[in-house]
Amino acid sequence: MAYIWRETFINMRHSGLIGFLSIIIVALTTMVFSLLLIITNHINTQFGVLKKSPFVVAFLEDGLDDLQREQIHKQIKGLPQVDAVLYVSKEEALQRTSRMFGERREVLDGLEDMNPLPSSFEIEVKDQYLGDVKEVADAVKKLSGVAEVQNAEEASKLIKSVEMIALLIVAIMGLASIIIIFFSVTITTYMRRDEIKIMRLVGSSRAFIRIPLLLQGLIEGLLGSVLGVSIIYGLIYLYGILNLMILDINLESFLSYEQMGAVVGVGMFLGFMGGALPLRKFIKV
């Protein structure tokens, strides 16, 4: 085992510029991943409140008894797109309006006995159905006892679009990183093909050749990802000091320990795979 570790470090020392470039590529990849995670964290925090607001409100006809109301509640809850349904009584609607008026709430005095505000169901839509708010509203409108339905279709579509774009960027950058690392390690391994062939010809097993190269990939992945995360931490720290008002991102928006672990894990995985995939071609001597 000591020999394997020594081989790994000798390989790393001899890989020179290419090894250094592999670390830098992993660092750049993890920087992109980290930034995207941080921005996703930020979007989730900003949109989290919005996403939990009701995108559909069903106003009920006056004079419905408890049974009828319960029937409507069940039917709405039964829709596959619906996450949660909250009943707002006429009294609560009036209280909310009163709170909205603040110091001028006296204009509502006397309405308690002849409350004109309708009772309603506030309907939260599941994240994956944010694009289907209009369909939910149409379905609810058809229910007996529902007088009117309001929906925030535009807002829900905007959130959905932003999330899709973020996901697309993550996918494209992730794929680009894997391709870059694959080619970088393929070049490294190609440069070493004679060495690998010699090892095979003097009786090395495939594992004996493979293990140091895989360990090298893992170590380069670890170094690169720790470097990448550290640089992002430094940049966000600087960003906080400079107090630029473009995006309200600071160290509080930085990766959680779990996310940091995941990013370092991804870096090590990329290094490992980068070491494993191209090796198969050159080891068949």
Binding site: I10, H14, D194, E195, K197, I198, M199, V202, G203, S204
Partner: peptide, 18 residues
């Protein structure tokens, strides 16, 4: 077919290392 980045002794030892 000597490994270019190893010493003569390391190259000779290779057959035993493996």
């Amino acid at each position: 077919k000597l490994l270019p980045n190893r010493t003569v002794a390391q190259n000779v030892a290779l057959s035993l290392r493996v």
